[in-house]
Amino acid sequence: MLFRRIYQFMIVYVIGVIFLWMIKLSLGLSDYVIPGISLLKDTAEEFGTGYFMDVVNTLSVTVLGQFLSIIMAFTVGIAGRKSSWIGSFIKVTAYNIQAYPIVALAPIIFILLGDGFLSRLLIASMICYFPLLLSVLGIMATPVTDIEHFYIVTGRMRWQLEVKIRAFENLSKLTTVIAGSATLAMAGTIVGEFISANAGIGYSIRIALYQSDMAKILIALFMIGIIISIYQGILESMGEHIKHRWSIVNKGDEL
């Protein structure tokens, strides 16, 4: 799965670059607009390793940011699953915060947390958590009537049990959403670094943009793509492993 993800990304990247080169050749554009093969090669040799380390740096924040966003999404999703006043209030608050553009919130975040690691982490989790929240809310607000009915009738239903039943019955959906949200966590971290940080690939892209250096940007995109493919591949493998384990446990229970 991991290998497939990497070569699929390579195909997409190569098609994208060929597309750009065709435009370059057809319109007779200079290396300033679209870098040619030799410039791209030189830039990769000069900055490739540095950018790789930058992406690894970004990934470390991404992993933490995604973990934080999963916790946030589950907390809000579980608390807001009821159609009570509190549930509705939590949902409205979560939705409204998401509606604010992150660039407008950024100055407040930087006043509170400075321009270091914590700001990047918070912005990454804020961008990543909303799609997770929607899925969690959808799952947690939908009763699994067949199973829940028994516990309700016998008076044994507690909120923890309700959450467990709904999570277990939608495990496949949850693992897919979590694996998919890795891309958003990475994008969120890069946005955070782009707006304000002194490290990470988003910061390097910002510098490359100041210098109008498209070659650097293409190399950065390549590095981001490779690393995120690996990370998503690992998450998907983990998801498969968890599903497999749970199904074994489930079968064991049945026996």
Partner: peptide, 30 residues
């Protein structure tokens, strides 16, 4: 970026800073 707009034929005149101009010339922009 005005230089890119010029090359792509989307603009005929533009404003750019000296560093943009010099960096673009190094990369073959006309």
């Amino acid at each position: 970026n005005a230089i890119r707009e010029l090359e792509l034929g989307r603009a005929q005149f533009g404003v750019a800073s000296a560093d943009q101009v010099i960096q673009a010339l190094e990369k073959g922009a006309d």
